[in-house]
Design a protein around this nucleic acid. Structure first.
Length: 329
DNA sequence: GCCGGCTGCCGCCAAT
DNA sequence: CCATTGGCGGCAGCCG
């Protein structure tokens, strides 16, 4: 099978992980299936490119060298994000490259704020897209014809893939690998790099706790913080209403407005987040974890896992906790 | 895996 | 008159 060329487009002030995360996943896949991918990195000027953290990365191609003929040999083009995005957008070179690439490259993608380049090139008109959560409003404002999904880890719309902030690029790369090769390779790559092949929690872009913090600090701020701090307390809706000083109906509306979910659903997500963490990071018995996270019984946690993640807690632990180091004979 | 009882959600309406 | 809030009750889905 012919190798797939994956081309990353970078610029000064990039977020280094936007490049190195997916790059690492594709290169690991190429170790599992030799020759599956060939990777290269392009920038305005070839040579060292300084990322926003100060780490320098090396581009081996220039944007100018990427003419139509070169682009026809590219399978996947990925534009990274970073604080240098503003300056890089100003000269229009990357958007121009993307216009040349459209229709010639099988798949065009972005990580984090890289989505702005795709949007500038007109590739996201009338399409769904994802970007870093802090930039969701701005992308919506600047490109009202793009349907920005603020919840998604990554969005695939035809030939265009866009992912949320930073490490979401890893999730997207794994999905591409699963698509190109198969599930086993994607799983092996995820396991080897100790990342989730499929992030638990479905479409949630960040944990319930972070989401609550990001929500406008209204009447619910103190309540959601209290829930996150002590998930095992009695958080039936009456208790929550009392804590927030609202009626049941108003509590329900406040949650729907600022968190787009019901009070009980929020509590369950906080408990699930806590349980996932303990399952992976501790060796406590599953039942102990269930109680510690506020599930009234092992059975209740079991059903919550089945409903939201479609795996049992013990299967989840088996899949995601790092295996013990192998013993040398 | 089933089933009785209960919880929580949400549409609706009245009140502010 | 509209907007917001609180309460009621039916219904779906969950718990034990």
């Amino acid at each position: 099978m012919a190798t797939r060329r994956v081309l990353f487009v970078i610029y000064p002030g990039l977020q280094a992980l936007d490049l190195t995360g997916p790059h690492q996943m594709f290169s690991a896949a190429a170790e599992e299936r030799p020759g599956a991918y060939t990777l290269s990195v392009a920038a305005a000027v070839a040579g060292p490119v300084v990322s926003q953290s100060g780490l320098a990365l090396v581009a081996d191609l220039t944007l100018a060298s990427l003419n139509a003929r070169m682009l026809r040999g590219v399978d996947t083009l990925i534009v990274v994000g970073g604080t240098g995005m503003g300056a890089a957008r100003a000269d229009g070179a990357i958007a121009a490259l993307l216009k040349r690439a459209a229709g010639r490259v099988r798949r065009i993608a972005s990580v984090c704020t890289g989505a702005f380049f795709l949007a500038d090139a007109g590739l996201l008109e009338g399409r769904r897209a994802a970007t870093h959560w802090a930039y969701v409003p701005r992308l919506r404002r600047e490109h009202p014809r793009t349907d920005v999904d603020g919840e998604a880890i990554f969005v695939r719309d035809g030939a265009y893939w866009t992912s949320a902030g930073v490490t979401a690029g890893i999730d997207m790369a794994l999905a591409m690998i699963e698509d190109d090769l198969d599930r086993d390779v994607a799983l092996a790559v995820a396991r080897r790099n100790v990342v989730f092949r499929m992030r638990p929690g479905g479409q949630a872009q960040f944990s319930a706790e972070l989401e609550a913090q990001a929500a406008p600090g209204g009447a619910l701020a103190a309540l959601t913080q209290a829930i996150a701090a002590e998930p095992a307390r009695d958080w039936r809706i009456e208790q929550m209403a009392a804590h927030a000083g609202l009626s049941l109906r108003s509590l329900s509306r406040a949650f729907a407005r600022s968190l787009k979910q019901s009070p009980a659903a929020f509590v369950e997500r906080v408990r699930m987040d806590a349980a996932r963490r303990l399952l992976v990071e501790s060796e406590q018995p599953v039942e102990t974890i269930a109680r510690a996270c506020g599930f009234s019984s092992l059975r209740q946690m079991d059903r919550a896992f089945a409903r939201t993640l479609a795996v049992s807690p013990s299967a989840f632990r088996a899949r995601f906790s790092s295996p013990l180091p192998e013993r040398r004979p």
